[in-house]
Structures are given as structure tokens and as C-alpha cells.
Amino acid sequence: MPYIDNKKVISHSWRAGANTDMKARGVSLAERNMAGRWSPGSTTADTVYDRPHGIGEGDPLDKVPQFGGTAVAAARAEPPTE
């Protein structure tokens, strides 16, 4: 199981990530409750599933080539000679 920011990634991590991203972009609590299937009026999205700390630090997926980033340049580099 991978770790991000020295914390084990579990299924609820993905749910928290989506909620945290939506909140950062100004999506209302009511809309996030609906998207996360929480009860209307619930504050669970803000009290349990809002985890903005450590965003993007120590993410093992940073090593995967995406959208022409630095990983692509590394993948295109010549392999080391023996």
C-alpha cells in the first residue's frame, strides 16, 4: 500500500482528496455533501474529509510520466551504460 506524506493511503483517502479539491475551488458544502453522499446539512465533509495539509508532498505518483512533465524527460534520457 503506498504512502503519501508518510500516511498510508486507504480508500477514504481518495474520498477526502476529492472533497478537499472541491472545497479549495469554492464548491459549497451542500454540493460536496451531495457528491460525497453525505446527509444534507452534514458537516462531515468539512470535519472529517477536508485534508489540505501536505498536498503534493511525497506522492509516489509524481514519478509517473504525465502531460510531458519531468518524468517524461527522464524516461526519454539514454539508459546508463554498464
Rank of each mutant, 00 (worst) to 15 (best):
M1T: 13
P2H: 02
P2C: 07
Y3H: 07
I4V: 15
D5S: 04
D5F: 06
N6R: 06
K7A: 15
K7G: 12
K8G: 14
I10T: 09
H12G: 10
H12Y: 10
S13I: 08
R15Y: 15
R15I: 15
N19M: 13
T20P: 09
T20C: 06
D21W: 13
D21C: 10
D21K: 03
M22F: 10
K23S: 08
K23H: 12
A24V: 10
A24R: 06
R25T: 12
G26C: 09
A30S: 14
A30M: 07
A30H: 07
E31K: 02
R32K: 07
R32A: 10
N33D: 13
M34H: 11
A35C: 08
A35I: 15
G36Y: 12
G36P: 11
G36I: 04
R37Q: 08
R37L: 02
R37I: 01
W38E: 10
S39C: 03
P40E: 11
G41K: 00
S42T: 11
S42D: 14
S42H: 06
T43W: 03
T43F: 04
T43V: 11
T44F: 03
A45S: 10
D46C: 02
D46R: 03
T47A: 03
T47S: 06
T47P: 05
V48K: 01
Y49K: 00
D50C: 04
R51K: 11
R51A: 06
R51N: 14
P52N: 02
P52M: 05
P52S: 05
G54W: 01
G54D: 13
G54E: 09
G54S: 05
I55A: 14
I55K: 02
G58Q: 01
G58K: 02
D59F: 04
D59A: 02
D59H: 06
P60Q: 00
P60F: 04
L61I: 15
K63A: 15
K63P: 08
K63W: 14
V64D: 06
V64L: 09
Q66E: 13
G68I: 11
G68H: 02
G68E: 03
G69L: 07
G69V: 08
T70V: 14
A71T: 04
A71D: 12
A71Q: 06
V72Q: 00
V72R: 00
V72C: 02
A73V: 06
A74R: 02
A75F: 03
A77G: 05
E78K: 00
E78V: 12
P79G: 09
P79L: 14
P80L: 15
P80H: 07
P80R: 00
P80I: 13
P80D: 07
E82L: 05
